[in-house]
Design a protein around this nucleic acid. Structure first.
Length: 632
DNA sequence: TTAGGGTTAG
């Protein structure tokens, strides 16, 4: 009785006082620990039970297998599995399913499949467990095939089956198939179900379609905190952060209290739109609510402050944390790396190692990227080697990408290309692009040409290689070739991805597209741009019109450059904040070289600090210089 | 006595 109530300790007290403990009492106590997420104690108790000479029965095994699953303890799970086989017990369908689930939760997919195949009888739970296992590992193909096979064998999926399979749809490329499952779920009669709708909503959020998520959210008849959290998370993506923050406040207006997960998601949204003011207010609410000791929130705060441009606040949060995990370290390391502090990044990394922490693949991405941005070639190569040598981590394409970029930027084009062709992974367009970029920087036109050829063979439908190649020819005064590269791009119908920038002023995050005239203060913004243009010209600024690919007159090219989204955001910031206020702008793409140059002039002319977060890193412009040292 | 919804670092 106590086991099913609140007090596990009371249950244990009674259990310990029992004079005659039979299998039933042991089972009850083991199950009680399992239900309270204390799998390790459940397993310990099971071992003790065997030591005392009691023979576990089917129910004991189900509970202890479940405990191994919840603690993801594969070795224990295998041990218990062996005991089951030794006991000669013919496992029931329930125990069989529990074993399938145990291997799935412990991450051993091949064993999961083997046990499933060996099941003498399968029911909807067996199928759902296996489908969920594949879905959680992102194996959408197997999950869908299994669903069809299950239906072919006459087993009808229930709502748990559908909720499980929805996990498999988690990126924009999955959206169309996700919509097919969505309609199948509706046709199967699962409507107005809180859990099913939340899973669908979440699927659309992960697939990058917050509008579809919102439609489901709006149609829900009831919403609990999990549904609200899922909606906030669905909006916490580039360009939708404002909506996430709005939903966060609406949630509270309807009387639903934010949870830790709510705060994590909304901080992520603030980070996304560089909403520093909003983020600070939410930080205060977190302190008021008493959640500020939660590690996961400390981590989210580090990330929010860093992405909002305030490295100092990020560091303060990190320093004040009472306990940390690998996410905390990786977050603070990433923060320093993104702000271009190469040496400080490595110093933190050394402290992490000294503290006995084990870095993971993501930690190394920040470390290598810091070496890359800081031009720290020897350090980068050393840590790259140490990944495999000291930490048994296999470098991914991104790690190779950092190193190839590092070598290329440093002018070691031979070594960079050598590594690219000899690495054990298939290079993607991003890596070829980075090498092409290095060829442009170092003026190696011939190498650039053959790399561009390889790149275009990949059928990479992106504007970037064409633009880079064209610019590279232009820099080498090869105007015909430059025009040719642009023509190929036009023939292929490739459009430049539109630039978007955001700036937080007062309580609002303002968004700008390149050339947009939608902002209520458009007239004043363009007047400010004109004003800046004159002052910049006097100071020696020359617009880099080679960056404009449109075939238009010179004067028109200058106008296009001046209307880049980051310049509009800065102009708006200048006219709407008191003089001296630092401006923080976020851009969806890399900052363009002309804007980068212009920002340096503007920072000096208006005597303000301008922080631009682009898709790659931070640029702190101050008194005519940028923190990246023009190396980005 | 077995399967299910929300979260952090690139």
């Amino acid at each position: 009785m106590y086991g099913k109530c609140h007090s596990l300790e009371d249950a244990r007290g009674i259990f310990d006082k029992l004079h005659n403990r039979d299998v039933v009492s042991w089972n009850a106590m083991i199950a009680a620990y399992g239900q309270h997420d204390r799998g390790n104690e459940a397993i310990q108790l099971f071992v003790k039970m065997i030591d005392e000479g009691l023979k576990p029965n089917e129910i004991t095994f189900v509970s202890v297998v479940d405990a191994c699953a919840s603690t993801a303890n594969l070795d224990r799970g295998k041990f218990v599995h062996a005991l089951i086989i030794d006991s000669g017990l013919q496992p029931s369908i329930i125990l069989g399913n529990a074993l399938v689930n145990m291997y799935a939760k412990c991450g051993d997919l091949s064993e999961t499949q083997i046990i499933f195949d060996k099941l003498l009888k399968k029911n909807v739970v067996s199928w759902t467990t296996l489908i969920g296992a594949y879905a959680q590992h992102g194996n959408k193909k197997n999950a869908i095939e299994l669903l069809k096979k299950m239906q072919g064998e006459g087993v009808r999926p229930n709502k748990i089956t559908y909720v499980s399979i929805l996990e498999a749809f988690s990126s924009p490329v999955d959206l169309s198939e996700g919509k097919v499952i969505h309609s199948e779920i509706r046709n199967s009669g699962f409507q107005f179900d809180l859990v099913v709708d939340t899973a669908l909503l979440n699927m659309y959020g992960k697939c990058g379609s917050p509008d579809d998520a919102r439609r489901i959210f709006d149609d829900m008849r009831e919403r609990d905190e999990i549904a609200w959290n899922a909606m906030i998370a669905a909006y916490a993506h580039p360009g939708h952060g404002k909506n996430a923050i709005q939903i966060f406040y609406e949630m509270q207006k309807t009387g639903v209290k934010p949870t830790v997960v709510t705060y994590v998601s909304v901080l992520d949204a603030c980070a996304d739109v560089t909403a520093l003011r909003e983020g600070k207010m939410i930080h205060e609410s977190i302190v008021d609510s008493g959640f500020d000791k939660e590690i996961v929130l400390g981590n989210a705060l580090i990330n929010m402050y860093a992405k909002c441009g305030s490295l100092q606040d990020a560091r303060t949060v990190f320093d004040n944390m009472q306990s940390r995990d690998v996410f905390s370290w990786t977050s603070v390391i990433a923060a320093y790396a993104q702000h271009g502090h190469g040496h400080a990044t490595l110093e933190l990394f050394r402290q992490m190692l000294l503290g006995g922490w084990k870095p993971n693949e993501i930690t190394f991405i920040s470390v290598l990227s810091a070496c890359n941005h800081g031009g720290l070639v020897d350090e980068g190569l050393y840590y790259f080697e140490s990944m495999t040598a000291a930490y048994a981590l296999s470098p991914t394409l991104e790690h190779y990408g950092c190193i190839i970029d590092l070598l290329g930027r440093a002018g070691w084009l031979d070594k960079a290309e050598d590594l690219l062709t000899k690495m054990p992974l298939e290079p993607d367009a991003v890596i070829w692009m980075s090498l092409l970029g290095s060829c442009r920087v170092h003026g190696d036109v011939e190498r650039g040409k053959h790399i561009a050829k390889r790149l275009l063979e990949l059928d990479f439908n992106h504007d970037a290689p064409h633009i880079l190649l064209s610019n590279m020819y232009a820099s080498a005064n090869r105007w015909m070739d430059a025009a040719g590269a642009r023509n190929i791009m036009e023939e292929k119908g490739i459009q430049k991805q539109p630039g978007r920038s955001w700036i937080e002023v007062g309580e609002t995050v303002h968004e700008f597209f390149a050339g947009d005239r939608l902002h209520p203060q458009t007239v004043q913004i363009y007047m400010e741009i004109e004003n800046l243009k004159h002052k910049m010209s006097e100071a020696g600024y020359v617009p880099d019109t080679s960056l404009v690919l449109h075939n238009v007159e010179e004067e028109k090219k200058e106008q296009l450059l001046l209307a880049h989204s980051e310049k509009l955001a800065v102009a708006f910031g200048l006219i709407s904040t008191p003089s001296g206020t630092p401006l923080r702008v976020m851009k969806n793409l890399r900052v363009c070289p002309d804007c980068h140059n212009a920002m340096k002039f503007i920072s000096k002319i208006v005597n303000r600090e301008i922080v631009v977060r682009d898709s790659n890193r931070f640029h702190h412009f101050k008194e005519g210089c940028c923190s990246c040292g023009d190396y980005w």
